[in-house]
Every structure is written in C-alpha cells, then in structure tokens.
Amino acid sequence: MAMDGQLEQKFCRVEGELAVTDGAVIEGYASLFEDRDRGGDIVVKGAYAASLKRLRDEGRQVKMLWQHDPAQPIGVWDEVREDERGLYVKGRLLEQVARAREAAALIAEGAIDGLSIGYRTVKAVKNDKGRRLLQELELWEVSLVTFPMLPSARVGAKGESRDDPPMRELARVFDDARRELARG
C-alpha cells in the first residue's frame, strides 16, 4: 500500500531470540533495518524516530496485540526504541489475559516465533530496483504473529541457535508454505 493513510503490516522473524522470561516478559526486534521483506519493502534507519517521539510527547504507547487483532490486546510494550539493528521491543504479557497466557506457552515451545508491526507509511521512495524504501512510518502496534514476513530473520526459543539444521529446515518449509499461500 502506498502512502494513502491506510494501516499496513510488516512481519518480522527476528534474528536471535524472542525470549519469554519470568513467564511474562518478552523482548525482541519487531523490524530490522535495510532488510528486504517479502513485499520488497526496506525499512531504513530512523524510520520510526518521529513516530516514537510523538507517542512519548503525547503520553501514548505502542499497542501489543495478538495477530494484529485490535480486539485482542495481550500485554504492554514497556520499551520500544530504534537502535543500530532495528526496532527493539520489550514488554510484558498480561497474565490476567487468557490469550496472553496462551501466547507465553506458544512462544516457549517455539510455536509462535514472529513479531509484526502495524503502521501507516508517512514517507517512502522507490530505489533503482523499484523497491519501496520506507523512510518514515507512523507506528501503531506490534503484534505477536504466527507467520512473519521478513525471510532473513527468525525468532527462536531461548538457547536455540538459528543455525541449527532442524531450524533451517523448518524455516525452509515455512518459506515454501508462505510462497504457496501468496500464489493463492
């Protein structure tokens, strides 16, 4: 979607780990800079800065949702910031919410391994290969998701290496399934 004001979503399987500690605290990267996603878009460093500042100034927070469903908030993001790698998030699943308890169990077992952002494009340009370079985004929410879109990154259970052969094979199977679903 171009810059028409509609909500867009980007899925990210994060390099490293989406860790759940103390049964409720989760952290990971919701977006990686300079990495092309399956839609061909590339988020550039600094794309979230204005949005994060505006949210802070207005005393608002990025929402934590389950599978981008606005009717299913499952926790709160206590920390959302850009660093050299991308958009880092750290928050708490609310143990009083049934879906949040389910999400913690699914993450711990490796059944859920993705984060996805919901945003509106404020500024984007096309590069010489026709790819959108997302230069400024209005961040609305970060969701826990089943099928992330960014192929170069993954989230794993604590202590799991992304280079483990079974994980590479599983990632390949999911990539193939996503391609088939996209063909419709």
Rank of each mutant, 00 (worst) to 15 (best):
I107D: 00
L93K: 07
L134M: 13
D35N: 07
R183P: 07
E169K: 04
V155A: 05
V89P: 13
R132L: 12
A157E: 13
G86I: 07
Q135A: 04
E169L: 01
F11L: 03
A24K: 08
A103Q: 08
H68Y: 03
E141D: 15
G130D: 09
A19N: 14
D164Y: 03
L7C: 03
E17N: 01
A104N: 02
S51F: 10
D83A: 01
R85Y: 07
D163T: 09
D69M: 06
V142S: 05
V122C: 00
V14L: 02
D57R: 06
A100C: 09
S161A: 07
L106I: 09
L32R: 09
E141P: 11
R36M: 10
Y119R: 11
V14T: 15
Q67S: 05
L87C: 15
R81H: 12
T146N: 00
E102G: 09
V44C: 12
D41R: 13
D175A: 05
L139Q: 03
L137N: 13
V14I: 06
A171W: 04
R81F: 14
V62Y: 12
V142I: 13
Q61W: 04
D35S: 13
A111M: 13
G75Y: 00
R132S: 14
R99D: 14
P70G: 05
G110D: 04
G110L: 00
R92C: 06
V25I: 12
E27L: 08
D176P: 00
A103R: 06
R131Y: 08
L94F: 13
G28S: 15
G5I: 12
R38H: 00
L55C: 05
N127S: 04
L134W: 08
A19K: 13
V43F: 11
L139P: 01
P70Q: 10
F33H: 14
R162K: 01
Q67G: 00
Q135H: 09
E160N: 00
E169C: 01
